[in-house]
């Protein structure tokens, strides 16, 4: 598929360097996911023309827009706190873009009314932003960004300002609107759930670089950094593979049913980790002694962090916890079945 957006964004900010490549196909939604300070918002601002590129290129629909000011780029932006113009009604906010594109008042209001209707706010057009709820403001912001018929739609943490319940509803709705958008969509977020639900493809950025990209299934199955592993809830280690054995540190290796040679990752979910008061007998190939560092509630279960030759997270039921007398400093045995680990090459 030919990319609608084809960009290499290089932005220097003091000692921080953002250098990422992005390609987005028509109709595709890509999530730029990463921890705070990874450069996600800088990337979005560079695409919008609000931050200058120090190097790289920026083509949208085959046109070089690198040196175009924001007002001449065919983009729409939904800002994190929406930035709805407080002195204008919802309808005037949405009509603002079409008016600037040269449509007359009547046409612009027609476009605005259609979009407000599409986001379910047809009867809220006369309200000022301060009289809209968070979820409504978010939808007006989306309508305003889409009303200019953008080739590239940019969303900066579009759900971050909402409370949990509104977030859930709005996420589903947003997904519907994004999949209907024929242009390219880039979603900047630090919330893996937003990324997984809303995006077709994930690009993970850490410290200004792309560390991994792919669809949700690939990334959740084969994380390549600690950050990604934590995002998808996996224990992740890097080591040297030799068949079914991956050596993590001197004298400590994990066994997997997968076979890998050379630079390798091993990953397994916390739920696959069993804890025993004494050295277990039986089938698990991976057992080692560890010291309990920390216990936290995790859904219905408890998430236990353990130090040892490698630090590991384990999910156990409250019943098992009671049996184990969990307290920091307690020595336990960790067991992970080889069949529940995944090993994959580190350099490919």
């Amino acid at each position: 598929m030919t990319a609608l957006l084809d960009a290499r964004l290089v932005v220097r900010r003091g000692t921080f360097l953002l250098d990422i490549e992005l390609r987005i196909a028509p109709g595709e939604t890509v999530a730029l996911l990463g921890p705070n300070g990874a450069g996600k918002t800088t990337a979005l601002r560079a695409l919008a023309g609000l931050a200058a590129l120090d190097d790289g290129h920026l083509r949208l629909d085959g046109r070089d827009i690198r040196d175009d000011p924001p007002e001449r780029r065919p983009i729409g932006v939904v800002f994190q706190d929406y930035l709805l113009f407080p002195h204008l009604t919802a309808r005037d906010n949405v009509a603002f873009g079409p008016r600037r594109q040269g449509q007359d008042r009547k046409q612009a209001y027609g476009v605005a009314d259609r979009w407000l209707d599409r986001v379910g706010l047809a009867d809220h057009g006369r309200r000022k932003p301060r009289h809209l709820s968070g979820g409504q403001a978010q939808r007006v912001a989306l309508a305003r960004a889409l009303a200019v018929d953008p080739t590239l739609l940019l969303l900066d943490e579009p759900l971050a300002a909402l409370d949990a319940r509104t977030r859930l509803e709005t996420r589903g709705e947003l997904r519907r609107h994004l999949s209907a958008h024929p242009g390219a969509t880039l979603l900047v977020t630090h919330d893996p759930l937003d990324a997984l639900v809303l995006a077709d493809r994930l690009v993970i950025v850490e410290q200004g670089r792309v560390v991994q990209e792919g669809d949700a299934a690939t990334i959740t199955a084969r994380p390549r950094t600690d950050y990604v592993a934590r995002l998808v809830g996996l224990n992740l280690y890097r080591g040297h593979g030799d068949g079914h054995t991956v050596t993590i540190t001197d004298g400590f290796a994990l066994t997997s049913t997968d076979s890998v040679d050379g630079d390798a990752f091993v990953a397994f979910p916390p739920a696959a980790v069993a804890l025993h008061p004494a050295r277990p007998d039986g089938s698990p190939r991976n057992t080692w002694p560890a010291v309990l560092a920390d216990v936290q509630r995790h859904g219905d279960n408890l998430r236990v962090r353990l130090d040892g030759p490698i630090s590991v997270a384990a999910d156990i039921t409250p019943a098992a916890a009671a049996h184990l007398h969990l307290e920091p400093g307690r020595e336990l045995w960790v067991a992970v079945k080889a069949a529940e680990t995944r090993a994959y090459p580190g350099d490919g």
Binding site: A48, G49, L50, P69, P70, E71, R72, R73, I75, G76, V77, F79, L83, F85, F96, G97, R100, Q101, R144, A145, V148
Partner: peptide
């Protein structure tokens, strides 16, 4: 907030 001006620019406003 000068970001309102940025928002206007992204909507095609000179």
């Amino acid at each position: 907030d000068s970001r309102f001006e940025e928002a206007a620019a992204t909507l095609g406003s000179t």
